[in-house]
Amino acid sequence: MAGKKSVARRHVGKDAPRVAPKKNAAAAEKKFGKAARQAAEKGGKKPGAWRDAEQPRATRVSHAAAATPPEALGTVAVTVSRTLDASPSEVFRAFNDPTRRQWSGALGFRVVSAVAPRFLRLMMHDGTLVSVSVGRQGNARCAVDLEHSRLPNASDGERMKAEWRDGLARMAEQLDGF
């Protein structure tokens, strides 16, 4: 058997020697679950949330693309609610599909995250955030709850509240046409 190479065999079973997990594997499992522990033991790529959690709070990087520095953003938030005669999926498409945004007028935004057809998070052109929740009310109606946050002052809050009310009214008219 001169041509054969020896192959190292792995010892498996309950008598197999245990490899000590990496330093943070137990903490990873406690905080992020079994998949994070397995990744830590294999030395694989860490989940993004785990990487962010390991950074000191002062140096954490926000993944939201806000052009305005955090200290310039305000803490005023306004809410607007409206019941529409449309299904939640139609309302979701009206927010999410750029070809159906005629109702938005001057409200320039981009969708940052979404859970169809119930929730959207929007980033406005000025760095403020909007959270939109769409709840079913029967077969052909839904309630839209909108919160616009990070507004710099109360007067801007009232102005944006009026713009969102008008925008949702235009959306209701547009959805009646479909």
Rank of each mutant, 00 (worst) to 15 (best):
49 A>F: 10
34 K>L: 11
139 N>A: 15
42 K>E: 13
99 T>K: 15
41 E>S: 10
163 E>G: 00
138 G>M: 01
12 V>E: 13
72 A>S: 12
119 F>W: 13
5 K>E: 12
104 S>V: 07
101 R>A: 01
19 V>I: 13
114 A>Q: 08
177 G>S: 15
100 R>S: 12
146 L>D: 02
24 N>W: 09
50 W>K: 09
53 A>P: 03
132 V>R: 05
59 T>S: 09
109 F>Q: 06
48 G>D: 15
139 N>P: 02
100 R>A: 14
126 D>C: 06
76 V>Y: 10
54 E>G: 12
171 M>I: 07
40 A>P: 00
10 R>N: 08
147 E>G: 06
27 A>F: 01
115 V>G: 10
65 A>K: 12
48 G>H: 06
104 S>P: 04
58 A>N: 05
10 R>L: 13
81 S>T: 13
137 Q>T: 13
44 G>I: 04
18 R>Y: 04
41 E>A: 13
49 A>D: 14
168 L>K: 06
23 K>E: 08
17 P>D: 10
14 K>H: 12
60 R>L: 05
151 L>C: 04
163 E>A: 15
156 D>A: 15
111 V>P: 08
96 N>L: 02
73 L>T: 01
96 N>A: 15
120 L>T: 00
105 G>N: 07
135 G>P: 05
66 A>W: 07
125 H>P: 01
80 V>N: 04
48 G>Q: 13
72 A>E: 14
109 F>G: 06
90 E>K: 10
